[in-house]
Amino acid sequence: MLRFFGKHALFMVVTLVAVSFLVFALNELSPGDVARKELGAYATQEQVDLLRQRLGLDRPVVVRYVEYLGKLFTGDLGYSQRFKVPVADIIFDRLRNTGLLAAVSFAVIVPLSMLLGVVAGMREGSVIDRGITMFATLAASVPEFAMGVFLASVFVVWLGVLPGTATLLSQTGGWSIPAQLVLPVAVIVLYDMGYVVSMIRASMVEVMQRPYIRTAVLKGMSFPRVILGHAVRNAMINPVTVIMLQINYLVAGVVVVETVFAYPGFGRMMLEAALFKDIALIEAGALVAVFVCVLTQILSDLAYMALDPRIRA
């Protein structure tokens, strides 16, 4: 166990360093200049140079990279040119908001997809299976923005039972935060679940054909006991990695939903930072995204080991 964590921690550090350098270098190479962008097209070259100097952009890349790493270790993530605040101030705030959205969505997606996937896969080709498969395919194929607009027009415009934005400010139209979360969560869940359900269903169908299921049935177990006692755990072994990968999407990839509902999240922040070439923020954001990525990798390895005794060795 100790070796497992040691190995993964080492892997994580190596990955983070590599990514930080890559992002740093990429930002250097991409066209456009922070100082020019900051000051606008009408500033004189002198003013631009002055700002570059003040920001330290005139020194070699490697020097600045090392300096950047040093600052990282002291918790200084730099200064956001776009939001005019220290990166640390904004990034953790946004991350917390996204974390809330992601956690709620994940908590709905996993049990619901397991339920639907298992029920669909336990009797391949049955009416229930076909119904669930169709629903899953449909849900996964409607784009997020279309789904967002559709749900908003039904529940906000037509029925008027939910708010159309989720700014997380309690004074927004007097809607509570849970009410604000309903629509964004619904869109994410519908969109993402279609995929996860299909994965679990496919795995379940395969498991139901294994000889050990026959053994269980011929022991005289009832069908529900066969499913719960013998099939589900085996059926979750393969999809577990995919399920954990959803966390990455939920943290860094829900840009569209956040934009549609004006949600102050991490994805939207990254989009704005990228559009504005807010290098410090992009760098910090990329590191956070990679960190989450490696973390879910470890989690899925752990879940994998918990489910399948064959790889515990």
Partner: peptide, 10 residues
Amino acid sequence: DPMSSLNPVK
């Protein structure tokens, strides 16, 4: 095939 007749995770 006894290997495949036994549930691998129990």
